[in-house]
Amino acid sequence: MAKKWGQRVRNWMAKKMDLPQDVMMDLPRITMIGQIHIYIENHRGLLAFTDKELRLLLKQGQLLVKGKSFVIKTILPEEILLEGKIDQVLYINENSGGTK
């Protein structure tokens, strides 16, 4: 309950103080360059990686990237740069019964 309340305060602050949401709320920031590059900041770790699929852990839920011939160009503790042909980017929420 306290966490929820904290979340709300942050949300309110972000809105009122015109701060970027990703900084305030630990949300992932995803930058895509066409279909070929996807750059994800603020992830919480790699869950699965094949050449057709990339599954990342987020603070809340997971992120699923689907496509073809994936190569991880760089991976840092909180950033990842993926190259390939990206078809889909999906958010999977914890509640809706994901893998974890």
């Binding site: 770790g45 790699l46 869950l47 699965a48 990686f49 094949t50 050449d51 994936f70 190569v71 991880i72 160009k73 760089t74 991976i75 840092l76 503790p77």
Partner: peptide, 20 residues
Amino acid sequence: IERFINVLTRNEIIIWNVKR
């Protein structure tokens, strides 16, 4: 393998061109 990569990245080991 994914877990291993996470371990590596958290220990500040930079890796690139990861291919399956």
